[in-house]
């Protein structure tokens, strides 16, 4: 049996008076990919942003319930938010490289943490992260070039590598392939399957086929609620809820 990494209990989230997550209960296991799917505005992004407290940035946000990471509460005021964000990395739907070199994009956060003082340590970290994100071969000769010159697919892998360079425990991916071509998508999916040995991954996607291909468990959200949760093949073959069936078979509306 795998260990529970994140334990979500009765999570409810409001933007002002508008509810975005309603009474959500979910366990996320170490070393697995959880696929999270659902129609637009069902609260997927909001859920990810709660997990690394990025939701704090919205002034009107109100959150209730409990989220435990390795048994420790992360929603309370005593949680070290910057530390949490280093443990729970996030890749956004739209790749946003910082306006710096490829190398600097990766080395930026680790250097500020002061954990990696030595030049060769940083070099090694950058190289390993780029390799893990399958970008190393393409950029190894131009690490000092601006990251803005990379193609969309490369930029998204750079963002993944940047998250990996923080050596997080959990990686949140919010529709990481929504803007990419099939080949880049395939490469990212391949990368994720490689990475799940060492990380806990939550993959949000609108593409049900992608969820079916990559994830171990799948969760389906609809109108702020968690409707279905289970082992991927089972959910896709015999969904328990009618809404899930409709969504998977594209009969939604």
């Amino acid at each position: 049996m795998l260990a529970v990494k994140i334990h979500v209990r009765d999570l409810t989230f409001h933007y002002g008076s508008q509810c975005a997550i309603q009474g959500l209960n979910l366990d996320i296991y170490q070393g697995e990919i959880l696929g999270l799917m659902g129609p637009a505005k069902s609260g997927k992004t909001t859920f990810l942003r709660v997990l690394n407290r990025m939701c704090d940035l919205v002034p009107t946000a109100r959150v209730a319930g409990s989220v435990l990471l390795d048994g420790a509460e992360i929603l309370g005021p005593e949680c070290d938010v910057d530390g949490l964000r280093r443990r729970v990395g996030m890749v956004f739907a739209k790749p946003v490289p910082l306006p710096r070199s490829i190398y600097e994009n990766l080395a930026f956060a680790p250097r500020l943490q002061k954990k990696h003082q030595h030049r060769h340590e940083l070099d090694e970290l950058v190289e390993n992260s780029l390799k893990a994100a399958q970008l190393w071969e393409e950029v190894k000769d131009r690490l000092r070039d601006s990251a803005l010159k990379l193609s969309g697919g490369q930029q998204q892998r750079l963002c993944l590598a940047r998250t990996l360079a923080m050596q997080p425990e959990v990686i949140l991916l919010d529709e990481p392939t929504s803007g990419l071509d099939p080949i880049s998508t395939a490469r990212i999916e391949e990368t994720l399957t490689e990475l799940k040995k060492d990380f806990t991954i939550i993959l949000v996607s609108n593409n049900t086929k992608q969820i079916a291909r990559c994830s171990d468990k799948v969760a389906f959200m609809l109108m702020s609620r968690l409707v279905e949760y289970g082992v991927t093949p089972e959910v896709f073959m015999v969904p328990k809820q009618k809404e899930t069936d409709d969504y998977i078979s594209g009969r939604f509306g």
Partner: peptide, 17 residues
């Protein structure tokens, strides 16, 4: 762009940094 700040925060970089 506001996205730069989102990225930095998601990397655990403090506001002032």
């Amino acid at each position: 762009p506001k996205e730069y700040q989102d990225v930095c925060f998601s990397l655990g970089i403090s506001k002032w940094q």
